[in-house]
């Protein structure tokens, strides 16, 4: 449930000026409350949660499956709202976030916090009472991890913020699986590991070209602290771990040819993308001479990669 898929220069709502002083400009509307939920981040979370439901052994009534995925979506939105409340100071100084509802002056910080807490508590209660306690507990754990470990503790303190904090975004397949089976087994933990290892190269590709934003906001992202060269190296290293890891469900016999071939082909594409990031034309300090075009391409490909990889797993399981 981490803040992973928002490219720079795209505000959540760009049509209103944050500087408007009149009451009309500062009056919130529905779109501001929806923007608090970070709907684009939510889409990936919902998708991986749905995959957890689809690939788990057993059967869950479609109404309950819908409820489980809805709870995951609402919890992700709650995390987004609480994150925007806590990060409103740094959001105000970053270009891509300066017009979010709180720094834009359209929603009060306390209102956003209350909104997030109500949604978080509601999603955990519904998941625990209507689906099962294990799924409710893992959902609560993921919210706690994102809010307390990532947002409040790690994000502003360490360049490894996104590595450890990425675990928060890796929970949805585990929650989806737990909703069906009432337990947490090896396979959902492997899916967790795949999203966990995928997060650093995905996010550092973004951080490479949004470097100035993070520096201005004082967020110790890896490119800010260790430089672009080191970041490119780390992207390659994590990708070299990621691609073999995606083949583990195939090795274990959990999936078959469709997934195996997809994982290999997609993985080779991923490695090609990160290799172009690594060999990007750069000055002696590591600053890109191509306006970080390979990093932008790698960021976009990484989103497609995870979507198609998990979709292939679901198709493979449903057809097998």
């Amino acid at each position: 449930m981490s803040d992973l898929t928002l490219p720079p220069n795209e505000s959540d709502r760009g049509e209103q000026s944050p500087l408007s002083s009149h009451a009309v400009a500062t009056e919130d509307d529905v779109r501001d409350w929806i923007a608090l939920l970070k709907p684009r981040v939510m889409s990936l979370v919902v998708f991986t949660g749905l995959i957890g439901v689809l690939v788990a052994p057993g059967h869950l009534h479609p109404v309950l499956a819908f409820t489980a995925v809805l709870c995951i979506a609402v919890a992700a939105g709650a995390c987004g709202a609480i994150n925007m409340w806590y990060d409103r100071d740094i959001d105000a100084v970053m270009r891509r976030t300066a017009n979010r509802p709180i720094p834009g002056g359209r929603i009060e910080a306390g209102g956003a916090l209350g909104f997030g807490i109500v949604l978080a508590a509601g999603s955990v209660l519904v998941m625990g009472l209507m689906i099962n306690l294990v799924a409710g507990a893992v959902l609560a754990l993921s919210i706690g991890f994102y809010v307390f470990i990532y947002t409040m503790w790690l994000k502003r303190r360490t360049p490894q913020n996104i590595v450890i904090g990425g675990a928060a975004g890796a929970f949805p397949p585990v929650i989806g699986w737990a909703a069906v089976t009432g337990s947490v087994d090896l396979i959902p933990l492997i899916l967790f590991a795949i999203v966990f290892i995928w997060t650093p190269p995905h996010f550092w590709s973004l951080a490479l070209w949004a470097n100035d934003d993070y520096r201005r906001a004082g967020v110790p992202m890896l490119p800010v602290v260790a430089g672009a060269k080191e970041t490119r190296k780390q992207i390659v290293l994590y990708s070299l771990v990621l691609v073999p890891l995606t083949l583990v469900p195939w090795y274990l016999g959990f999936s078959h040819t469709i997934y195996g071939v997809s994982a290999v082909v997609l993985g080779l594409g991923f490695l090609a993308c990160v290799w172009r990031v690594f060999t990007d034309k750069q000055d002696p300090t590591g600053v890109s001479l191509t306006n970080d075009a390979p990093a932008r391409a790698a960021f976009k490909y990484s989103i497609l990669y995870l979507f198609v990889l998990f979709a292939a797993l679901a198709v493979d399981r449903l057809m097998g």
Binding site: H22, A23, V24, E27, D28, D29, V30
Partner: peptide, 16 residues
């Protein structure tokens, strides 16, 4: 607020 602004306010509240 002007009449236009008041209309915008009402529209937003209705949406909420």
């Amino acid at each position: 607020p002007t009449e236009t602004e008041a209309d915008a306010l009402r529209r937003r509240r209705r949406g909420r």
